[in-house]
Nucleic acid binder design. Sequence first.
DNA 1: CGCACCGGGTTCTGCCATCTGC
DNA 2: GCAGATGGCAGAACCCGGTGCG
Length: 354
Amino acid sequence: MLCTGPTKTIELKPPGNTENESLLENLNLMGVDVKKARQRQPGVFRKAFTNEQGLAQFLQGKGASRRVIASIVSRYPRAITRSIEHLEQRWDLWRNIFMTDAEIVTILDRSPESFFRSSDNGNLEKNIDFLTSMGLNTKDLHRLLTTAPRTFSNSLELNRQMVEFLEDICAELGGTNPEQFVKAVITRNLYILIRSTKRVKTNIDILRSSLKLSDAELLALLQGPVAEILDLSNEYLKNNFNSLQKKMVSLGCRRAHIKNLIISYPMVLYIGPSTLSLKLDCLLKGGITMKQIVEKPKVLDYSTENITGRLEELKRVGYDFQKNGINILDSSRKRHVERRNHHSLLVWHGRRLT
DNA sequence: CGCACCGGGTTCTGCCATCTGC
DNA sequence: GCAGATGGCAGAACCCGGTGCG
């Protein structure tokens, strides 16, 4: 069976208060940043028995480099208290979702805590079952574990609370398919399950009140792109909303336009006040109107640097935004260059003919 | 072909606070 | 009182291209 209880307990014996000499030696040999590790989890260093060599061998067998192993132990020392059986079991559970060991090693290098923080493999297995039962398929789970690995170390109870909270929201807003709603929100925002219900709830309230949305409107929006901003910190969302509103009012926009912008392009609230201000100014200076931006907010997706460069190039070839619109700014580099070249060609022919 | 619409990829971890069980 | 387990927080965008329509 894959699932037995927590890790086999490892003997706790602090002989005086001295640290385990061979442990220190092993860690140094492994290239671990002992100072950092000790600062992080001092308890680990007072244990009589640890499994650093077993862990190292195990990870090496999975293709992890010496450097990666050292980095993992430096950042999450408790990893060395896990037994081989525990590690194998947990690895196998992750392998239900990942195709290769290499993928897992990448995640461990990125976030060792996600893999090692919990010793409860049973809980991990239950989480996988739970998420599957919600209608998330293998591909969804793969994206989820890759993007927000901590989700799988949450207690089943915590994940269940968030799911129930979202189902309740759906029902409150008059939705008829809570399961589908939750699935939509989670696949739209993979970080939801590692946020507190308090944070998500507050953000929903902020959006509802600041945009004066009806239940039906809110219900529809939450399943769309708005889901992407639900995990922002509450203060950040509020600040960004306020500064966006202030900026747009100062540019002569009406409230309705601000609402439209946010509804059609919620990610605008993800952009910090200074970046956003810079970006808008840059567009306006380039001869684009606020009205055009509100109608085609996706231009804001691109970096100020990128936009600046495009504006310069387009100015050089005499592109007229009032006549031709701003679609040309809202496209991938490849498409943009194609279209710009095409446009120059047309202009050139036009001149020759007149 | 030009365009609108849409969704996906990237990386979002590392620290502190609190509880729980021994 | 200790260490382990778990919850929660702050931080802060940009880019690409498939598909399908007219």
